[in-house]
């Protein structure tokens, strides 16, 4: 019973882990370069959840000091993840830009076709 309770009470982490693993799986298993990037983004997003969810405290309020509230949520993870999202967006857009260029240069974004056409690559 205790065990089950532990598992359920960490549901937020289970979701993060599920997203993380499925994202990684897509990166590895898919040959389409856009889909790979989608997987990569999913993977990154799971980390955002991992950070943010522990910052939420039940019954806590936004961290604005006031006499009637004693319990505050931790604002730092939000700040960090805001930065991480920016990084993620930059990575995704650069990745998509590369895919466009690859499509122009090789005529395909499927890895298998690409290697079939250009064995050197």
């Amino acid at each position: 019973m205790d065990f089950l309770q532990t598992v359920v009470s960490h549901y937020n982490q289970w979701i993060a882990v599920f997203l993380m693993v499925s994202g990684l799986y897509i990166v590895v298993a898919r040959g389409n370069m856009v889909k790979k990037l989608v997987g990569l983004n999913l993977f990154q997003t799971s980390v955002y959840l991992l950070y943010i969810s522990p910052g939420k405290i039940l019954g806590g309020t936004p961290p604005i000091l006031a006499a009637e509230f004693a319990v505050y949520s931790n604002p730092l993870p939000h700040v960090l993840i805001l930065t991480a999202i920016v990084v993620g967006v930059a990575t995704l857009s650069l990745g998509l830009g590369l895919v466009v260029r690859i499509n122009e240069a090789f005529g395909t974004i499927e890895e298998e076709e690409l290697f079939a056409r250009d064995p050197e690559a």
Binding site: L24, L40, A84, F106
Partner: peptide, 27 residues
């Protein structure tokens, strides 16, 4: 060389995975 694009893409995927692992560790 057009293969530079593939190299960059491959690096982007692996580099991002690496960086994300780093963030998880730090988290």
């Amino acid at each position: 060389d057009r293969r530079a694009l593939l190299a960059a893409y491959q690096y982007l995927i692996l580099g991002t995975i690496g960086a994300t692992f780093y963030v998880i560790g730090v988290g």
